[in-house]
Write a protein that binds this DNA or RNA. Sequence first.
DNA 1: CAGGAATATTCCTATTTGAGCATATAACCT
DNA 2: AGGTTATATGCTCAAATAGGAATATTCCTG
Lengths: 100, 100
Amino acid sequence: MLIFTAIADPVRRDILGLLLTGEKPVGAIVDELGLAQPNVSKQLKALHEAGLVQVRIDGPRRLYRIDPGPLAELDNWLQPYRAFWAGKLDALDEHLMRSD
Amino acid sequence: MLIFTAIADPVRRDILGLLLTGEKPVGAIVDELGLAQPNVSKQLKALHEAGLVQVRIDGPRRLYRIDPGPLAELDNWLQPYRAFWAGKLDALDEHLMRSD
DNA sequence: CAGGAATATTCCTATTTGAGCATATAACCT
DNA sequence: AGGTTATATGCTCAAATAGGAATATTCCTG
């Protein structure tokens, strides 16, 4: 699954948000999001296939954590567009630059 | 439509890519992507509803251009995750910093 | 105002996908 | 080994959506 498709789902974005504070077992995500466990597992599988999370086995638990690789790709995709919103500030920027 | 959903579609990403070089009429996008005109119009509508493009009427033509607002939001959403891939370079970064 | 070019809209269909539920697998403990 | 906890998988259904084809709308020109 592509990064773009992976983050299109709000549940998957919520999961990534939770993992910002560090790796978590599935159960913790289920508790915090109030969703059914099978659905959380399925979205975690999707995130894993997209390369957005990695798993670490800890006894009976699976600890999921963020793998930022695909997010860095997204950041890279975004790059050429940055000129557009940066450009909106050009007039101000150049004014300030000249004041230096 | 949310920005995340809007950029999940490859055709819509292609259209945004074409608009990087400036505003274009629908026909130009149709020619360059080799897609049927109604489909291009539909995806442009989706992009417009997502706030990703703006339209300017020029006679019988509609000139579409990028509106970077939602992309800036995406950039903002990405922000907390940057620490993760930046962190991967910390060891190297700090090493280089100390060399200065 | 008639015709033609550019674009939008509608209808239909096939595919995808997320949720719910039931069930299966895996690991730990005694 | 048996029971319990943690997680994954399979099945089915309903909703969303992209594409194709036909049609409608808008605007310019003569």
